[in-house]
Design a binder for these strands. Structure first.
Lengths: 142, 142
DNA sequence: TTCACTGCAAACGATTTGCAGGTCC
DNA sequence: GGACCTGCAAATCGTTTGCAGTGAA
């Protein structure tokens, strides 16, 4: 289930093994949001031989190439997700780590308004909601 | 311009010198948003003798006591501001570091709706807008 | 061949922690 | 007096970087 090398070539990156592995990991993992540590550990258990430093480098390159988006949830560690176009916001369960995405056009609109009213040109924006998912036992890890 | 010790006592904290200094700093500084490093440096230049570790400890205690609110902007370092009740969102200039606050009831309302629709009990939420302030020369530092 | 890429280990910046001594009530 | 605080230095955590070897085109 390895990724098409062209996708990397188009981004100006050589299609090396570590890159293909990381990219396919994001495309096939059921968790959309992964930290560098997550990626590293998954690759380890898969028997892949990739250094943690390389994971960090590749993730940053992918972010710059627009393939991934980096987020800073409260955890202190950065998490990445596939960039599939449209902007969206996040609801993070502080108990189980589950992340749900949503997008509200009205919120988007009012953010832009708030910024322009104050003379700001928006570069990016992020809305994080931290809470507890009340759906019986938390569906994810502890 | 030292703070009323009762405010600390009420929070269950002994009214020690470092705590009073830090608290009064937040109340008298013209910058509402300060990092631990900021606080430490200001205290140094004021001739105060407070350790960086103590600053970190005090800031965390104040946050737990509800006196301060901690934010994680993109910078990588945490910033704190006085907790004056009402929730509000932030617009951060990525060039000069200026922080403006705003609050939009409609956005608040729709956040709550989005969370409850997905079975989440909101614990906290933060909306950060990163941009560039177009008001001629950036009013703050470089 | 050649230059980009990699792994490893050391370096880093922000924050935390262990500990011996000092302080508030 | 005793529990709580403090400063200092060492430890931790996430992340970055220097360097010598490896691999894609």
């Amino acid at each position: 289930m390895m990724r098409d090398p062209d996708e990397l070539k188009n981004a100006g990156l050589k299609a090396t093994l570590p890159r293909l592995k990381v990219l396919s990991l994001f495309e096939n993992s059921k968790d959309r949001h992964l930290s560098a540590e997550d990626v590293y550990k998954i690759l380890l258990t898969t028997g892949e031989d990739v250094g943690l430093a390389t994971v960090y480098r590749v993730l940053t390159q992918f972010e710059q190439a627009g393939l991934l988006v980096r987020h800073h949830f409260e955890s202190g560690k950065a998490v990445f997700e596939l960039n599939q176009g449209g902007h969206h916001d996040h609801i993070v369960c502080i108990k189980c780590g589950r992340v749900e995405e949503f997008c509200d056009e009205e919120i988007e609109k009012r953010q832009k308004l708030a910024a322009s009213e104050r003379g700001f040109t928006i570069q990016e924006h992020s809305l994080y909601i931290y809470g507890i998912c009340t759906k019986q036992p938390c569906p994810h890890k502890a």
